[in-house]
Amino acid sequence: MAVTTIADMVIVPEKFSQYVIDRTTELNTFLKSGIATPDAVVGKLINGSPEGGRFIELPMWDALDGEEDVFGETDVSIGSIATKSSHATLLMRQKAWGSTDLARVLGGADPMGAIANLIADWRNTREQKVYLAILKGLFDGTSGALKEHLNDISAKTGNSGADACISDGATLDTKQLLGDHYGNLGMVFMHSAVYTYLQKNGMITRNPIFDPSQSSVDMERYLGYSIKVDDSMPYISYEECTSSDDGKIEVTAVNIAELQEHCATTLTASTSDAKKYVKAISPVYDTYFVGAGAFIRQEGTPQGFIGTETDRDKIGAKNYLINRWCQIIHPRGFSWNINAAYPTINGEVIKYPNNAMLATPANWSLAVHHKKVNLACLRHKIG
């Protein structure tokens, strides 16, 4: 069967970009759960950004203060309504694929749909890493802007180590960090190992819910929180060690990326002069308690921005599809540091933040009272 190539297709960039955006939105678990919601005002701000713009301003009203007057013949006192603002950063990302990367799907009846679905799946995986990078920065135990909502029990040693494990008591202590706003937390995102641990200990409840299309379905909950199980939830399972430690693993250029994802300290690969090692430890998990609308997620098209392009290398007989996207993924109640230090990558100072910058605590500041933020984190072990 003849294989359709990118060069054979007539791609209308605007329509293809929208197709990918729509498909990505449809598949996005964070959006479907309701913790990330669009914002039409933010969308207009993105679309109005001049070419080269990097930030948008999010104005907000200060809470009213002062005391009321007692009715009488004197003039009523006049209070003021003050405003403040926070900043959000544009996320501008791009990726190109060659026809050889897509050859296995281009022979189908709907090659454009196949490509769009592949890109949407890939972008969802990448977007989830954006949320997790932001949460990592906010919940840094030393300087995170939301460290007041972090309940870190992972180092506790009482009850033969059981005090370091997730429990009903530890969860209730976590929600109490929001005080009387605890009711804004409705969902819990956890790793499957945490979920299985809770199951083993009979801590998961199943509530039947009537669904006309399926007669009834069971909604699993943990202490009333709707459960979302996802193995991309972060955990730490390695620590640096010396060559004399049992079970040591040498850090190499091949495995450093995999090891770094689950190690709290920054690793470097071994060299001929210096060997670097890590060892496995009892995993420490981050379990997130999240409320609806905790994040703004909004797509947009700044002036001069081209979302989709195709190209062909005639000499090399290669076809390319380039996909670029611009969006805001911003935790409500926070401000991005517009004076953040942007790193040099491939000889160029980047203009928009990468995930490492999003995970940097110093790049975020709290812009509202912490009780108004629908996020909390329990850092723990499992038995």
Score class of each variant (00 low, 15 high):
139 F>L: 03
77 S>T: 15
367 A>V: 11
125 T>I: 07
372 K>L: 08
237 S>P: 02
73 E>Y: 14
41 V>C: 07
232 S>N: 14
218 D>H: 09
342 Y>L: 12
98 G>I: 08
291 G>Q: 06
268 T>R: 09
53 G>D: 00
152 D>F: 05
275 K>E: 10
245 D>P: 07
192 S>H: 05
307 G>V: 10
286 D>E: 06
375 L>T: 09
229 V>D: 13
152 D>H: 05
284 V>Y: 01
169 G>E: 11
94 Q>N: 06
238 Y>G: 13
23 R>G: 06
176 Q>S: 15
116 A>M: 01
306 I>Y: 10
195 Y>H: 15
290 V>N: 00
24 T>Q: 09
323 N>H: 08
279 K>L: 12
45 L>F: 06
205 T>S: 14
125 T>E: 07
122 W>F: 05
221 R>V: 15
15 K>W: 06
363 N>W: 02
254 V>W: 00
284 V>M: 00
186 G>T: 15
285 Y>D: 05
26 E>W: 11
19 Y>C: 08
53 G>K: 01
141 G>R: 13
215 S>K: 13
231 D>A: 08
32 K>S: 14
253 A>K: 01
134 I>A: 11
325 W>L: 10
275 K>D: 04
326 C>Q: 13
337 N>I: 12
40 A>W: 09
356 A>D: 15
183 G>F: 04
66 G>H: 07
331 P>H: 01
97 W>Q: 01
251 V>T: 03
370 H>W: 08
160 S>T: 14
58 L>H: 00
142 T>Y: 02
71 F>V: 15
249 I>H: 01
251 V>P: 03
240 E>N: 10
199 Q>A: 10
233 M>Q: 13
